[in-house]
Write a protein that binds this DNA or RNA. Structure first.
Lengths: 110, 110
DNA sequence: ACAATAAGTCAAATTTTTATGACTACTCAA
DNA sequence: TTGAGTAGTCATAAAAATTTGACTTATTGT
């Protein structure tokens, strides 16, 4: 493993990967999507502090990363559904690892 | 789980946790530290694109998060050693999960 | 006393990310 | 044809993260 290969920020898939899941809202959205397909307005309600713009950005990025898939549902009032792709499903273990950590001691120190 | 509890960015430990490990250089430094204690100058050489300032920032943040411990070694030329704390060790599974992903297909699409 | 090495700090500039507020597109139903 | 509902876009502003380049501290060897 050379120095260059170790520089995650520029060359390594691992950093690239973490970037896919980070940002102010992407982790939240990802976690909702794990539960099942989510719609735009639904996320808006679940994350009242996020703006439309913030959510569309996050959703576009998750889409571009190949984690979420955008599906327009032509029903009564038009809907847009986002759901995990196969790749997205592969990311679940990362969140599982995160959730398995007991952060209480850390939070309390703050 | 209420809406508020789900808003990782503001209220949930999971987002707080992800924040501990993200940023331009923190993941790299963390991965080095997993191998064993690292020194400032050593990291500088390993990450030639990172500036002193960037590294001290990252190291301070990792320290404040309780992931790394800073130890001054009063030897020949003064040294500063950073090593994983117990909490830091608990983070390893997250990176393991990251490393277990096969990102080749993703990288190729870009 | 002086230079060298290791590990920084500081203020300012730049870049990236996120927020604000106004406006748009499409579909359906009355 | 008008209005309601859903899902946005766009330009700009503000905030946060990162970089730049000069300066600092502490210790040791000569």
């Amino acid at each position: 493993m050379t120095t260059q290969e170790n520089n995650l920020s520029l060359h390594c898939p691992k950093e690239y990967l973490l970037k896919m899941l980070t940002g102010k809202w992407k982790p939240c959205i990802f976690r909702y999507a794990v539960q099942g397909p989510v719609r735009f307005g639904q996320i808006m309600k679940l994350l009242p502090d996020a703006t439309r713009q913030a959510l569309t950005n996050a959703l576009r990025e998750l889409e571009e990363s190949g984690i979420l898939d955008r599906k327009v549902i032509k029903l009564k009032p038009l809907h847009v559904e986002y759901h995990l792709t196969e790749l997205g499903i592969e990311f679940i273990p990362i969140f599982k690892a995160v959730e398995e950590l007991n952060l209480l001691p850390v939070m309390l120190k703050k």
